[in-house]
């Protein structure tokens, strides 16, 4: 799984940015990050947007990937805060996670 790190202050982001939101520097390095993380929090969505209606109920998870980086993802397995999860695939613009 790839992320970007500000060369000046170390801020980590999933995408490159024009400006680092922390220090406004403009140079980022690609970094590989460990593909497992911990569930920081989650919700179970029952009332979903049209595109997701057939999948409901499903989970949207916020995964702590590194000390500085959390990622919002999609899961169809039950989870709890603190559960260990692994990045499974990038599908239709979403990071999909599964239980370890």
């Amino acid at each position: 799984m790839q992320a970007y790190q500000c060369r000046h202050c170390g801020y980590e982001s999933l995408t490159t940015k024009y400006y680092c939101p922390k220090c406004r520097h403009t140079e980022f390095s690609k970094v590989n990050i460990n593909e497992t993380g911990d569930i920081y929090s989650y919700t179970t969505i029952h009332i979903a947007p049209p595109k997701f209606a057939e999948h409901a109920p499903y989970h949207v998870v916020l995964v702590q990937m590194t000390d500085r980086l959390r990622v919002t993802g999609y899961m169809n397995q039950d989870v709890n805060i603190g559960d260990r999860v692994r990045f499974k695939e990038f599908s239709e613009g979403a990071y999909v996670f599964e239980k370890v």
Binding site: Y42, P49, H55, V60, Y74, I81
Partner: peptide, 30 residues
């Protein structure tokens, strides 16, 4: 759909099926 215009279209969050009540659900659990 109209309310979702207040989310960042270029973000992976919308594609994960996140909604406004979803955001506050995640916040509430934490």
């Amino acid at each position: 759909e109209a309310i979702n215009a207040a989310m960042d279209n270029d973000s992976n969050e919308k594609h994960a099926g996140l909604t406004f009540p979803g955001f506050f659900g995640v916040l509430a659990n934490r």
